[in-house]
Design a binder for these strands. Structure first.
Lengths: 416, 416
DNA sequence: ACGGAAAGTGAAAACGTGTTCATTCTTCAC
DNA sequence: GTGAAGAATGAACACGTTTTCACTTTCCGT
């Protein structure tokens, strides 16, 4: 067969390849990464030969060369990965022992385990997750459904989520749904084929029938925008795992601050109409304002986006009666509000109108906005979510769990 | 066994469950989704019974109920998914026929295929991708390595990528690497376990040894920031698949525009030091400026981030000599530049200093920035990338492919 | 009607792992 | 030295597909 093999550190061999090219490449590798064993095997000799840089090379050229080879690799070696059988053979143990070596809970003589792991590393072996999933029923994949990865809040949450899951041996499987926050059946069926162990949906208007299609597997599904979790809403005990957010704390701080400045007319530029995040925020704002003797907020309909918040603000002042202060359902919406006020209505923020957002995304501290906002600790939230998921996966029959997170006001330049 | 089963449309049955609860739920489902078959099966009857809402219910309550059941589902039914065997049995065909029914290229009598697909749908069956991957060697997963999902450019690219891959029957498997744009071996080994069919790395400083660990499988790896692809750099023929971007066009337009305003001192606020995107952009700027008789740009070191671009701009004017116009290596960096100029240095943009970015991300049209920028068509780029990947997967031995994309200047408010 | 090509079919063999179960080896107290 | 308990071991099976390989049926032109 037309193969090429190249090893660095210890044994250096070439088969069916041009010797000097191999040595040149080897030398380069040794110079750059001398403590590392590199094994390259199973290519069209002709291709590797014509591609490997000779003489002095820089790193980029070498990467290009290797990448080029990887791309044109021989089909016959596609399954060339080391298998547990090979490791077992080389270590003079049974294949089962190899499996056990990679499972920390299995009992295996420490010396044996060490030997197996060493040989496995030499052969660049890791257990095949597809096979493992097939027999264990665990794919170690977590499906994440999101309407728009670019939305700041979502992207930051996906980022933290991926980090947390990765640390626990899981991987994030990303799916996009329609932008209107609905999750269609087709997508769910599609995703189901990948066997995720759990699903986190950044959408809300989930149809029962859609969810039902998932129910023939024990897949915990987390509809991601949590209940408002205000004390007055809490019930005897949760029916299922739940993540609550206490909007009250942050909202009270914000309203109190605004009252200190003598604000009278407060408007709310909303999020997507029936979404829980929007409902909870608007509701809490209404409750807190009523408690403090303020008239109900003026509602300007929007959908969490910059553009619609911008337009809603124009309407509020041109068609409507305006306001002294504006709450936006999220920070991105608040950016739209601020830009509309400053650049189209020629109003000053915060002198003429004060603005408060929700979320505290990374962009909120940018100087052009410098937004005062109700912070929703993202890292903490993701940690709690991953904790819920893992606990549920490890113990499917445990009683329902509930985690509660608090909010607080971050005061910046758009108030005061 | 302690099971509950509920069907809507046609046959409506309850087993071991409270009849009226079942009927109530059924009625709700029928009212809401009357054209849909809903099959719920395999739960702890006690749990479903205590959870299902009775009488008038709203959608949210019902979702909560179903979700609660999904979470507390019986362990024994975890593998309760329909299998090809069951479909075959019910359709009176062999299991192989079922497999063929789901493979468009396999030959099967149309009537038979139709029957099988109908029954499969009834049973909510889809082929198990883990099993399929095991035997076919194709996981239909594409690994995406990214240092920071939140970065605007990356998040928009991930979004488009996911959409495109989803349409082709693939899914995006997301991994995070370190923020310094390096890709560590550990991550690659970890990812390898998931058997991605291809890997797209949004990182550049890839070590050969790191890549080599992937080379025992035929996995096309795309290091994502492309070569500058300027004509003077192009070679005889590409050694491997490659995506080129012609920065020249957009940069020429930008420099020409600036010259028209009599700009003399041009600065460049850079990206991550040795990254290709940064290198290519700086290089092209240098070349074009030289061609037009301008002095070389003043370099202000940054790393693509808002905060460092902000700081670099302050340095440029406080320690250095300032500039009439500033190119930023990316749009986010340009936002930092603009904010530093306006809010800390009290300079006007564009009157005192003109600013140009690279990328044209969605935020660039926001009124606070309204950035003039060199557009890099994201959708087009992702389409090209997916095209390359699929062609390579379908035909691993095809000659190397090359796609070239152009750029153009989008003129907004930060120049002129 | 006839032959041959093409299409359709199902039994069996992979794919690479985790798990169970009966067996063997080690350890330790007496 | 003995017995028993516990740890360590490997053979065999299971997981749900796709693929290969003979074999049978259908189709079509003469």
């Amino acid at each position: 067969m037309n193969t090429f093999s190249l090893s660095v550190n210890g044994l250096t061999r070439c088969q069916n390849g041009s010797a000097e090219r191999c040595v040149s490449a080897t030398g380069y590798l040794q110079r750059s990464y001398d403590s590392l064993a590199v094994i390259v095997t199973g290519f069209h000799a002709s291709k590797l030969d014509s591609v490997l840089p000779c003489g002095q090379t820089n790193e980029h050229d070498f990467i290009d060369a290797i990448a080029g080879v990887a791309l044109s690799q021989d089909e016959t070696t596609a399954r060339g990965r080391a298998t547990a059988e090979m490791v077992a053979q080389r270590a003079n143990v049974s294949r089962v022992a190899v499996s056990r070596a990679f499972n920390p809970h299995a009992s295996l003589k420490p010396a044996k385990r060490e030997l197996i792991l060493r040989i496995a590393q030499e052969l660049n072996y890791t257990p095949d997750r597809a096979a493992r999933a097939l027999v264990s029923g665990r794919s170690h994949l977590v499906g994440v459904i999101v309407p728009d990865v670019c939305s700041h809040w979502e992207s930051q949450e996906i980022d933290a989520l991926t980090t947390a899951l990765q640390a626990e041996g899981f991987a994030t499987l990303l799916f996009k749904t329609r932008i209107d926050y609905s999750m269609d059946e087709q997508l769910l069926a599609y995703m189901r084929g990948f066997n995720p162990d759990s699903v986190i949906a950044f959408v809300e208007n989930v149809k029962p029938a859609t969810l039902a299609r998932f129910l023939d597997r024990a897949v915990p599904i987390y509809v991601h925008y949590p209940r408002s979790g205000a004390p007055e809403e809490s019930q005897a005990g949760p029916l299922h795992d739940r993540l609550n957010v206490l909007h009250r704390t942050g909202v009270e701080q914000a309203v109190s601050l605004l009252q200190g400045y003598g604000v009278r007319r407060i408007a709310y530029v909303s999020g997507v109409d029936k979404s829980r995040a929007n409902t909870a925020r608007e509701h809490m704002l209404r409750v807190v304002m009523a408690e403090r003797g303020l008239a109900p907020p003026i509602i300007a309909a929007s959908d969490f986006s910059y553009d619609r918040a911008y337009a809603a603000t124009l309407d509020l002042f041109r068609v409507g009666e305006g306001a002294d202060a504006i709450f936006a359902a999220n920070d991105v919406g608040a950016f739209g509000v601020i830009d509309a006020l400053r650049h189209e209505l020629n109003l000053r923020v915060p002198e003429d109108v004060k603005v408060v957002g929700f979320d505290d995304i990374a962009q909120s501290h940018w100087k052009s906005y410098n937004l005062t906002t109700v912070k929703f600790d993202l890292e903490e939230r993701v940690r709690a979510l991953v904790r819920l998921i893992l606990r549920r996966l490890n113990n499917p029959d445990a009683p329902a769990l509930e985690e509660t997170l608090n909010t607080r006001l971050v005061v910046r330049g758009t108030v005061g």
